[in-house]
């Protein structure tokens, strides 16, 4: 967070370049996050603008206990919540009682013993971090991400797209560690399932085809 300290000092000095860099790096990501929380494009736009104004108002008092980015995402999440409430809606975060139990894999794919009856198809043999999803495969997974329930989507966006550490995701969304992990697990499991269906249907996961 020492980079943060430097950046915050520049912002507090009124360094406009520093502010432009910050906005340039975060504006689009905040919009994506606000959309992930279930806001319409227009509302997300408003909430993100209000977020920046709140950042300016709060910057002098920001104590750096979290990363600057996390703090800004948290302001955005609060703004989104307030905004949704004003529109008579709420963002259902952390209320897992309303989420039906969702197994990671359809239970009918297991034998009564819990062993696979219908195992996942064999994918390509590369190590996972060398697998580059084909454009088609990536867009299937992206559609599935867009279709996740808001709470799962918000957690997956912050943890897996933004790469925030788990505890910071909890702070931003006001979730307990265990609820956050349940949401992450459900979201990720769905995305994995979509990729599996795609492979099962004969789709190629790698731009160059399967090895």
């Amino acid at each position: 967070m020492s980079d943060d300290r430097d950046l915050i000092a520049r912002l507090r000095r009124g360094d406009e370049d520093a502010f432009r860099d910050l906005v340039g790096s975060l504006h689009g990501r905040l919009l994506r996050f606000a959309r992930a929380l279930g806001l319409t494009a227009a509302l997300a736009e408003e909430v993100v603008q209000e977020t920046w104004l709140a950042v300016l108002r709060g910057l002098e008092r920001f104590e750096g206990r979290s990363a600057l980015t996390t703090w800004i995402f948290a302001i955005c999440a609060n703004g989104a919540r307030t905004r949704a409430a004003r529109e008579g809606r709420e963002i259902p975060l952390g209320d897992l009682s309303r989420d039906p139990e969702e197994p990671a894999v359809d239970p009918s794919r297991f034998r009564p013993s819990g062993a696979w009856a219908q195992p996942p198809p064999r994918g390509d043999a590369r190590p996972p971090d060398e697998i580059l999803l084909s454009r088609e495969a990536a867009s299937r997974v992206r559609e599935a991400l867009d279709a996740l329930p808001p709470a799962q989507r918000a957690v997956v966006v912050l943890r897996d797209l933004e790469g925030l550490p788990g505890p910071e995701v909890c702070n931003v969304l006001g979730l307990t560690e265990s609820n956050m992990r349940v949401l992450l697990h459900r979201g990720r499991s769905r995305l994995r399932g979509v990729l599996e269906d795609y492979v099962r249907g004969g789709g190629e996961t790698h731009p160059g085809g399967r090895t």
Partner: peptide
Amino acid sequence: EYVRGMKAVLANFHRIGTEVVPPEVPPELF
């Protein structure tokens, strides 16, 4: 294979990410 599939999804998040809209930042902000 199951765990590999999950890791493949995670390793590709930078490609999966919903498009980041090219930011049209209102000039008033500056």
